[in-house]
Design a protein around this nucleic acid. Structure first.
Length: 529
RNA sequence: GCGGGUAUAGCUUAGUGGUAAAGCUCCAGCCUUCCAAGCUGGCUACGCGGGUUCGAUUCCCGCUACCCGCUCCA
């Protein structure tokens, strides 16, 4: 990405974040207390938008399908569940930092190295009297010049210099010692510099169950779930038995999950608390690969359905070695955010890994018996796992547009419009009396509002000129504005036949049409459902 | 976690060692017969905590948050 485009996208993102705040989509969590790192709250319109997304997802995946049922598991999770799944113990990354370049590396991904370690105890600068005592080492591969160790060490020590005018070359190194080593991983392969000790980053939120639980009571430990999936696996048998399900079938769940991300970034994109929309689709082992491809296609259609065109999505076929250890096949569905192409959803073939683990660890049989074939086996599972907040953000980014239009006076102006698909738009229709100082118009408009309100989120507005009110609605993505005027009242001479009709103004085209009030509800239901 | 940047009203910005200006928005009123009209009036801000100072929004230190890069994202 060129510098210019990246600059432009940063500005675009700023505008989106700003609009999200000013129009009540997304606020920073605990803002009046200075904010909570990586946490965000949805305001009135954001809550509607997110609710609509979740409703469409649930409708498409549960309500309209015979083979998927829903559930809603607890967020607090038994520690044994996450021990079995491998999250306790496995869900942390040892990290270390290069003392010289400050690069961060995964300690477990550093190739073992051999060579000569040059160690120093400190450095000094005679002329200025400056000195520092800090142990530091450099690893040199066989055949490298010993001077490289000195050069690297001087560079390292020079970062402590208060007088930046002093050249690293003028530093005197102290206490040089050398040692031959083999298979060590505490040096940066890039430059030979010593790394910090590996630090564990535990990515799970741990808590204590019971108001009087002791902090050191191991048995009281519980976790906030790092994914909704585990509660589905753990309840697999119950759902199977109580709902007479037959393979293949799925269990869907929408809910919050928590991960102690090292570095929350990009607005709501990477948050420590986030909502997932997950399906665990159980099947015969022979069907796994095929179903993974089918689900990928199904999910792409879903995004198209809610207004994210396929051209803005990217499919990443996650290569061997980069997939989770339990996965035989994984597709990432990525979206072109202004801040880069980032993952919205993972469609992963998790094999029988999870059910097998829970089968073993709980001692309860989670096997499936097929009456037809008399076969007994652990079901395999395909998991389409979507990030709800990420999708909301994608919807906002996709919808945002600043349109340049020429007004009646021939002057160019910018119209900010959120082109949400009507299905997910927070407000479906705005009801507007043409003038607010004419009680008959206001009364009629209130009637229309009340008639629509039980069926959808409508908004009544009588403040300011009609044009301004249209633009306000554009900015929050309301697909239709309904205006009650004098013709609606049937008092216009020669236009008595327009009694009880209203102007329907369409957001994207700004075009207006005349419609009887009686047709409004079916029209809007069809367009916004 | 490291490096860099930023923090003034709901939003976007101005400005100053003597507590602050504007545009837009918003609210009230008048007016207004279809795309951010006009007039009058109004609310609202120097992120938090220290220090220096007679006095700090301004200078210094710390913290927090956000943005960018690195890193990370099982």
């Amino acid at each position: 990405m060129s510098e210019e485009i990246s600059q432009k996208n940063a500005e675009l993102m700023k505008k989106i974040v700003s609009l999200c705040k000013s129009r009540g989509f997304i606020f920073q969590s605990a803002e009046i207390y200075g904010g909570l790192n990586g946490c965000w709250d949805y305001g009135p319109l954001g809550a509607e938008l997110k609710r609509n997304l979740k409703e469409v997802w649930w409708r498409r995946n549960v309500q309209e399908r015979d083979d998927i049922v829903g559930m809603d598991g607890s967020i607090l999770t038994h520690q044994d569940v996450l021990k079995a799944s491998g999250h306790v113990g496995g869900f942390s990354d040892p990290m270390c930092d290069c003392l010289l370049s400050k690069a961060r590396l995964r300690a477990d991904q550093i190739d073992p190295q051999s060579g000569t370690v040059y160690s120093y105890t400190g450095a000094s600068h005679e002329e200025s009297g400056w000195s520092v005592d800090k142990p530091y080492s450099v690893l040199l591969q066989e055949g490298q010049d010993a001077n490289k160790a000195k050069k690297t060490a001087r560079q390292y020590y020079s970062q402590f210099l208060t007088d930046k005018q002093i050249s690293p070359k003028k530093l005197e190194l102290a206490g040089q010692e050398t040692e031959e080593v083999e298979g060590v991983t505490n040096f940066n392969p890039e430059n030979g510099s010593l790394l910090t000790e590996p630090r564990e980053f535990n990515l799970m939120f741990k808590t204590q169950m019971g108001a009087s639980a002791d902090e050191n009571d191991e048995s009281a430990v519980a976790y906030l779930r790092p994914e909704t999936a585990q509660s589905i696996f753990v309840q697999f048998k119950n759902v199977l038995d109580t709902n007479r399900m037959k393979l293949p079938f799925g269990i869907a769940q929408i809910g919050k999950s928590f991960r102690n991300e090292i570095n929350p970034r990009n607005f709501t994109f990477r948050s420590r608390e986030f909502e997932q929309m997950e399906i665990e689709y159980f099947c015969h082992p022979d069907q796994g690969m095929e179903l993974t491809d089918e689900w990928l296609e199904n999910r792409l259609c879903f995004y198209e359905d809610i207004g994210i065109p396929r051209e803005h999505l990217h499919i990443l076929d996650v290569p061997d070695g980069e997939r989770a250890h339990y996965s035989k096949k994984t597709y990432d569905i990525e979206y072109e955010f202004p801040f880069g192409i980032q993952e919205l959803e993972g469609v992963a073939y998790r094999t029988d890994y999870d059910l097998k683990k829970h089968n073993e660890c709980s001692g309860k049989s989670l096997e499936y018996f097929d009456d037809q074939t008399k076969e007994k086996f652990i079901a395999h599972v395909v998991e389409p796992s979507a990030g709800c907040d990420r999708t909301v953000l994608a919807l906002i980014c996709e919808a945002f547009e600043e349109e340049t239009i020429t007004n009646e006076k021939g002057k160019e102006e910018v119209r900010t419009v959120m082109r949400f698909d009507p299905k997910i738009a927070p407000i479906k229709a705005a009801v507007l009396p043409l003038l607010k100082n004419k009680p008959e118009l206001v009364e009629k408009a209130r009637e229309v509002q009340k008639a629509l309100q039980p069926f959808m989120n409508v908004f009544y507005d009588e403040a300011a000129a009609i044009g301004r009110r249209y633009r306000r609605q554009d900015e929050v993505g309301t697909p239709y504005c309904i205006t009650i005027d004098f013709e609606t009242l049937g008092e216009e001479e020669g236009k008595e036949d327009l009694k009880d009709t209203v102007t329907v103004r369409e957001r994207d085209s700004m075009e207006q049409s005349r419609m009887p009030i009686s047709e409004l509800l079916p029209f809007l239901l069809e367009k916004t459902h």
